[in-house]
Design a protein around this nucleic acid. Structure first.
Lengths: 146, 146
DNA sequence: TGTTGTTAGTTACAAAAGCAACCAATAAGT
DNA sequence: ACTTATTGGTTGCTTTTGTAACTAACAACA
């Protein structure tokens, strides 16, 4: 009995995640008509350089259909291009076009500002502990595949 | 330049939230065919007692259409009942039926176990800091209405 | 070579979420 | 009373997501 909902981690995490991403979401949505998975793909390519869709799935823990659609959308917007790999024509290397790089530059700037904004309610040590705890929780426990 | 994706709070929070809710989600989904918003409604009624749909919207920061549909679904499953209020026939007070209470009892037990499980990767002080930081972040900054 | 298995990625269809318009009850202003 | 908000809640339609089935390229092996 007496279960305390606002202390339940999955719930609390969700609330915090939702609250903290809304404004940024509106930004990339309005300005570039992007969806969540699209900026994720964009940011993966922007931060880590060229990679295949599969790599993104693994790194981000995102299902391949979601990534596939996001890649399609970004390609239509000419934000990324695919290059077939010679030795295995199943994988295609994804890379940002100049236009994609410009968008990434803008969005990563906005993200940085935005991140500073929301983390302003926390002290430096709180912030460090938070990040480290979240990383531990985020470690995908097994299978999964959202 | 050099934006570091895995430190970006909205992203990190999302990853952690996603990872930490998956297993529990499977549980209530499989066992009771419930959706996320449905258990939220159930838990609000179970934890705080009778309230109107509007109250749930406010407390949980959830859009009214989502709540409306979840209430409908829970009503069809006979987990909750509505009572018209005399002095204002617009609001209806929602309350769990015995069946709904039983489901809540089972799920809140499961949730408690589950919460203990995932928080096992953190020390007690880490956990406290985490909860308090998350609460600060979750404080809906304004409007919103997910 | 032919069969079976795997892997990367796409597509089709069903389920869920978001949004805006809607209805009915009340409140406010005249 | 009478027009005009406002509020609680629902519904219809569109956009996104989830799931499973599918294609194509490769790998293993008989």
């Amino acid at each position: 009995m007496t279960f305390h909902l606002p202390d339940f981690l999955p719930y609390l995490l969700n609330q915090a995640a939702e609250a903290s991403s809304q404004e940024f979401q509106r930004y990339y949505r309005q300005k570039y008509g992007m969806l969540r998975t699209e900026w994720r793909v964009l940011f993966h390519l922007g931060c880590y350089g060229e990679m295949t869709a599969k790599d993104i799935c693994t790194r981000a823990g995102t299902h391949k259909t979601k990534v596939s659609r996001a890649v399609g959308a970004l390609e239509r917007k000419r934000h990324l291009a695919r290059t077939e790999l010679d030795h295995d024509r199943r994988n295609e290397l994804l890379s940002l076009t100049p236009k994609g790089k410009a968008v990434f530059a803008d969005l990563s700037n906005a993200a940085e500002v935005y991140d500073r904004n929301i983390s302003a309610v926390l002290s430096k040590p709180e912030l460090d502990t938070l990040r480290s705890s979240l990383r531990k929780l985020a470690e995908r426990p097994s299978s999964g595949g959202q």
